[in-house]
Amino acid sequence: MASAVAVVVATLLISFVLFFVAPRDPVGAVCGAKCPPERAAEIAASLHLDDPVPSQFGQYAWGIVAGRTITSGGTTVECAVPCLGYSYKLGQPVTALIADAAPVTFSIVLGAALVYLVVGVANGVVAARRRGSALDRLTVGGTLVLSSVPYFVVALVFALYVAGRVLPPSQYTSPLASPLGWASGLLAAWITLGLVNAAAYTRYSRASMIEALGEDFVRTARGKGISERRVVYRHALRAALGPVTTIFGIDLAAQLTGAIFTERIFGLPGLGTLTLNAFAQNDMPVIMGSVLVGAVLLVTLNLAVDLMYTVLDPRVRLG
């Protein structure tokens, strides 16, 4: 817990130094090279860039927990809690931009998770039960090759040749407005991200299942005369899923901050696309906000996985 907080504070410091202390001209970095002098002065005053550095950092950090007011183009903008800064390029608080993009990323990642968990675990169980067969060797070889091919290449081929032809064209509609439009627009992205990750989950669950099937309790269950189906799915699978759950938690956290390739290639306006567009326009406050939100998300989810693990496996205690 303490280390998670330390990581968040360290990220806050790193991003602050990267964006406000390191640049030769912080106003130029925020506003651009052709920034009119009066606008530059306004930004400098609004962000207190003439104050000492520790005081600037204090104001930035305080803005996140208490909000702050920012002046832009003569009008005063109330930057509500948690204030991550203000995009002078887009004329919106960074928090609002991130709040708009977050549902897209969450939709992509959670839908894909469903695909790879179902496909991966099912494949892994089948391969483990027929260990050594041609089907097993094909599965293992196939997943090895698939996970060695660069992800952006697979996604690109899918986006160009499958989405819009075999599958509906990729786009984002709010699930509240049209649940069907939401699902069909994201289907291509789900299948791509899902199938590529399913390769890894096939290997995890195959290895984990082979180990579980060799355990004494499985032999006991078979000896008691329980049906093979029940032994595999009730007894062995339940034990085999433990390690898979842990990896899933870590992967989910990584994907929420790293679905950038999927979003860019399928043209979905999530957090990754927001950050890439901000990069293209040199919109520093947005990049800084995304980095911070990404770090907090990653740390929180990793902590949640650790806590979950103590619930799933009572032998584990957090140190």
């Binding site: 964006f19 520093m284 980095v291 990404g294 990653l298």
Partner: peptide, 21 residues
């Protein structure tokens, strides 16, 4: 190991440009 690598991969070139002015 707990920082979002891809986001930093986007932030670093932007910052490096600003650092050299």
């Amino acid at each position: 190991l707990s920082l979002p690598y891809l986001l930093f991969a986007i932030a670093t070139p932007a910052t490096l440009m600003a650092v050299v002015g």
